[in-house]
Simulated assay, not measured.
Amino acid sequence: MTVQTVSHGRLAALNTRHHKAALTVYLMVVIAHWAEHVFQAAQVYALGWSLEEARGLLGVPFPWLVSSEWLHYGYALLMLIGLFMLRPGFVGRARLWWDVSLGIQIWHHLEHLLLLIQALTGNNLLGRPAPTSLLQLVVPRLELHLFYNALVFAPMVVAMILHRRPRSGERALMRCACATASG
């Protein structure tokens, strides 16, 4: 048995018998990350903390988390990989919404790659004092990342809901047991 056969077998299992569990784990990771961004925004807008003080829930005891471009890039890459790996399990309308989320995450990942390259080389976009993404030229980083995460999260949730409640034609194409009995 080749490595390719084993990895294809694992990917197939992930999108068939393990799809529901994999989606649950993936969703929990996404929600935890989303909560960090919301918590940081609440620290700024509700508690009046400065951006330097507002580091999210985990960033308060571990300040390096907020300033690590490697960590932010790693998470963007993890999101992208998860969207790609779980994609084969989706069909019909759910697949369309999952693909929308994937497309937005591709852009979000490229923005984080740009930030990481700047952090590694010390050459910031347009001579800015800190690594800067393209859209960050017009939208502050805190708000931009809330926006990006919402843009990726919303169609992903729609895809998951449609996946759990497929139409009869979609249900016939599904290879997993994610659909509810009444779907």
Rank of each mutant, 00 (worst) to 15 (best):
L14H: 12
T16M: 02
R17Y: 11
R17Q: 11
H18P: 01
H18K: 14
H19G: 05
H19L: 11
K20N: 13
A21K: 09
A21C: 02
A21D: 00
A21S: 11
A21N: 05
A21H: 08
A22V: 11
A22H: 11
L23K: 04
T24M: 15
T24Y: 15
T24N: 12
T24E: 14
V25Q: 05
Y26M: 14
Y26A: 15
Y26K: 01
Y26N: 11
Y26C: 12
L27H: 08
M28K: 04
M28G: 09
V29D: 13
V29C: 14
V30A: 11
I31H: 05
I31Q: 01
I31M: 09
A32K: 11
A32R: 10
A32G: 10
A32D: 01
H33L: 07
H33M: 08
W34G: 00
W34T: 00
W34N: 01
A35G: 11
A35H: 08
A35R: 09
A35Y: 09
A35W: 07
E36I: 03
E36S: 06
E36M: 04
H37F: 03
H37E: 06
H37C: 05
H37W: 02
H37M: 08
V38D: 04
V38R: 02
V38I: 12
F39N: 03
Q40I: 02
Q40D: 04
Q40P: 00
A41R: 02
A41D: 03
A42W: 14
Q43V: 07
Q43W: 15
V44N: 03
V44C: 03
V44K: 09
V44W: 09
Y45W: 15
Y45S: 01
Y45P: 00
A46G: 04
A46T: 12
A46E: 13
G48T: 09
G48C: 08
W49E: 02
W49N: 00
S50C: 11
S50I: 12
L51H: 11
E52F: 02
E52V: 13
E52G: 07
E53Q: 15
E53K: 12
E53W: 04
E53M: 14
A54C: 08
R55I: 07
G56D: 02
G56S: 06
G56P: 02
L57D: 01
L57G: 01
L57F: 12
L57S: 01
G59L: 08
G59D: 05
G59Q: 07
V60M: 06
V60Q: 07
V60I: 12
V60F: 07
P61V: 07
P61M: 10
P61K: 12
F62V: 13
F62L: 15
F62Q: 05
F62D: 00
P63V: 12
P63T: 12
P63D: 15
P63L: 14
W64D: 15
W64G: 12
W64T: 13
W64R: 02
L65Y: 10
V66I: 10
V66D: 05
V66Y: 13
V66Q: 08
S67P: 00
S68Y: 05
S68W: 03
S68V: 04
E69Q: 13
W70D: 06
W70C: 10
L71T: 06
H72D: 02
Y73L: 14
Y73P: 01
G74T: 10
Y75V: 07
Y75N: 03
Y75K: 01
A76Q: 01
L77A: 10
L77R: 03
L77N: 03
L77M: 11
L78D: 00
L78T: 14
L78Q: 02
